[in-house]
Design a protein around this nucleic acid. Structure first.
Lengths: 116, 116
DNA sequence: CCATCCTGTAAACACTTCGTTACAGGTGTA
DNA sequence: TACACCTGTAACGAAGTGTTTACAGGATGG
C-alpha cells in the first residue's frame, strides 16, 4: 500500500481535520471498529448534526470513509471507518510538502475584486 | 533523544499549529536554517507583525524555538529555528493520544457566564 | 395513525483566527 | 538631528469554525 505522500494542500487539510479534540476522538473511536452515525454520536456524547459535520470534514480530508448500507430491518445506516493513513511529521518532511503548497495567501477565484 | 509522545492536548496544539499554509511554509523555511524575524518576513513575503503572531503559535506548540541575540552592530535580533520534532500519525497512534484528551468540549475559564 | 429509529440540511449565534495598520521602544551611523 | 535597521504589541475588521436548535424525509412496528 504505502500511501503516496499528500500534496502540501492535502496535508494542511488533513492536519486541520485532526487538529480538533472532538474530531480526534471520533477518529480514535472509529479506530476501534466501524460504526454508524447515530450510534457513534451516542457513544461519544455529541449531537448527530454536529457529528455529521465533523465526519464530513474528516472524510473530505481522506481520513475516514462512509458507506450507506441497509440494516436487516431495512433502515438506511451510514457506516464510517478509518482509512489506512500514515503520516510522518518532521521538519524535512514538511519542507518537502511545502513545495507543493498552492495557497500561501488566501487567493480567491479570478475576477472578483481587482482594483486599478 | 527519541522525544516522548505528546499528550492529546499537546498533539492537538501541534497539529493546529501546522494546519496552516503560512505556518507550514514558515517551518519549511526554518528547516533550511535558522533566521531572524525581519529577514524571514521578507523572505516569505509577509508582514512582520503577522509573522510574529504565527511564530508565537509555533513556539507555543513546541515546533520552533526563538532566542534573542545581539548582532555585531549591537542590534537585538530574535533568531528562530525548528525543534527536532517527529510525529507519527496513524489511527492507532491517534487512538492512544486521544486517551489523554482533557477538553472534549470547549470549556472556557470559570466565572464568565454562569446563568441562574 | 402514531411512535421510533435512521438519514440529511439549513438558520442563527458565539467564538476564534487571520491579516492590516498603527504605534511603542531600542541601537548604530551619516 | 534624522535615518535605517531591529524588536514587540494593541486595535480593528473580515472571514472561518464550532454548536445548537429546528426542520425535512424514509422505513419499520405497535
Amino acid at each position: 500500500m504505502t500511501a503516496a505522500e499528500p500534496t502540501g494542500d492535502e496535508l494542511v487539510e488533513m492536519l486541520a481535520a485532526l487538529a480538533n479534540p472532538l474530531r480526534l476522538r471520533i477518529v480514535a473511536t472509529l479506530a476501534g471498529g466501524r460504526d454508524y452515525v447515530s450510534h457513534l454520536a451516542r457513544e461519544i456524547g455529541v449531537s448527530r448534526p454536529l457529528l455529521h459535520m465533523h465526519l464530513r470534514r474528516l472524510e473530505a480530508a481522506g481520513l475516514v470513509t462512509g458507506t450507506l448500507e441497509l440494516s436487516d430491518d431495512g433502515k438506511a445506516m451510514k457506516y464510517y471507518e478509518v482509512t489506512g493513513f500514515d503520516l510522518r511529521l518532521t521538519a524535512p518532511a514538511l519542507a518537502e510538502a511545502a513545495k507543493t503548497l498552492t495557497r500561501p495567501d488566501p487567493e480567491q477565484g479570478p475576477g472578483s475584486k481587482e482594483h486599478s
